[in-house]
């Protein structure tokens, strides 16, 4: 209680003085519950900088606040789908991440992503994939296909969840029926619509938060993200993660320096810091997604370094791709299908 009172009083002081200590600060604007406190502690100790983390809950909120200006943040962590918008709207400074000392640790496949050509603007944070999660005690057939949710086997009907994310669901279905992502080809989109409308009655739910439900065996399959699949397996050893061979989407979050950052030097130190393998491992250890840093496996918890959910098996590597936000014409048709699906 005493500490509580002291903190209360000291925050009054901070309020009164307006700004806290000006020297040695860094303001990170990141997704909630996504930053390992150990990582921050280590950075603070090594560089004598006080790091403040502020949360957001969607790419849109983050973008809106940064666009408005005057936000006081130095670094933000947008997703690959939105990063080109940040760059093209001139919201970012270019810290030349590709010339930083620790850039040599970034894996070859992450050095030149489509959404940040030459990787000048963004340092890798975490990445993952959209695949299928299956309880193999219920169904032990082939799980590396989107048929698990779109043409489900008898055993899984009525026990399927689908993440309520429009782009993830429609991209998966477009690839499943053999189309191209962001297509405006009506024949393909008709197939997509028919497939989804046909599959939906076989689903149980379209929700976030699957880990508990796999643990309690309320669900037997789901279209979802790999990190959650991994955590579900830790609670229910029969859970496996499948990479749809018809094609699946990848996503990545990356750290960027804002144009109006006040603590540019500290921010650059942080960008370089998180590309060191032992620090990248701390990021992954907390939120349980892969980073893009070679050699970080050595520092990861042993259950992660070999996990099929985190380390993509070679045969499925080529099926995974990053997809940008679709052009408005495609977006409009996607939304129409999505609305119909929600009915």
């Amino acid at each position: 209680m005493k500490t509580f009172v002291t903190t209360f009083l000291s925050s009054l002081l901070v309020f009164a003085s307006g700004t806290a200590l000006a020297a040695g600060e860094l303001n990170l604007f990141n997704w909630g519950n996504y930053t390992n406190p150990k990582l921050i502690e280590k950075f603070e100790k090594e560089h004598g900088v006080k790091v403040t983390i502020t949360d957001y809950d969607s790419n849109e909120t983050a973008l809106a606040k940064v666009r408005a200006g005057g936000h006081g943040f130095d670094l933000a962590v947008p997703s690959h789908s939105h990063l080109p918008i940040w760059i093209s709207e001139g919201l970012l400074a270019n810290p030349r991440v590709d010339q930083m000392e620790n850039f040599k640790h970034v894996s070859e496949q992450w050095r030149n992503p489509d959404w940040d050509p030459g990787r000048q603007y963004s340092a890798p944070w975490q990445w993952g994939s959209v695949g299928v999660v299956v309880d193999t005690s219920v169904y032990d057939g082939d799980i590396n296909t989107a048929a698990i949710v779109l043409d489900p086997p008898q055993e899984l009907i009525g026990k399927i969840n689908v993440a309520p994310e429009m782009l993830d669901v429609i991209h998966t279905t477009v690839l499943y029926v053999g189309g191209e992502v962001c297509t405006t080809d009506k024949a393909v989109l008709r197939k997509v619509r028919d497939k989804l409308v046909e599959a939906k009655p076989k689903w149980k739910s379209m929700d976030y938060g699957i880990i508990e439900k796999f643990a309690g065996r309320d669900l037997a399959a789901s279209l979802y993200w790999n990190g959650a699949a991994f955590r579900a397996r830790l609670k229910n050893p029969d859970v496996r993660y499948g990479y749809p061979r018809e094609g699946y989407s990848l996503w990545a979050d990356a750290v960027v320096l804002l144009k109006d950052a006040k603590n540019v030097d500290n921010a650059k130190k942080f960008l370089n810091f998180i590309m060191a393998p032992e620090n990248a491992a701390l990021i992954s250890e907390f939120a349980r997604y892969a980073n893009s840093i070679d050699g970080s496996e050595k520092y990861m918890p042993p259950d992660m370094a070999t996990a099929n959910e985190i380390i993509v098996p070679d045969e499925f590597k080529s099926a995974g791709q990053f997809y940008p936000t679709c052009p408005p014409a495609a977006q409009k048709m996607y939304t129409a299908i999505w609305t119909e699906l929600q009915k």
């Binding site: 303001n27 997704w31 909630g32 519950n33 403040t52 983390i53 949360d55 809950d57 976030y208 939120a287």
Partner: peptide, 17 residues
């Protein structure tokens, strides 16, 4: 602004994970 998460916004940030 930076570092001004209140209890409700902190909780909101936790929800997706």
């Amino acid at each position: 602004s930076a570092g001004q998460d209140t209890l409700p916004t902190y909780m909101l940030g936790q929800l997706r994970r």
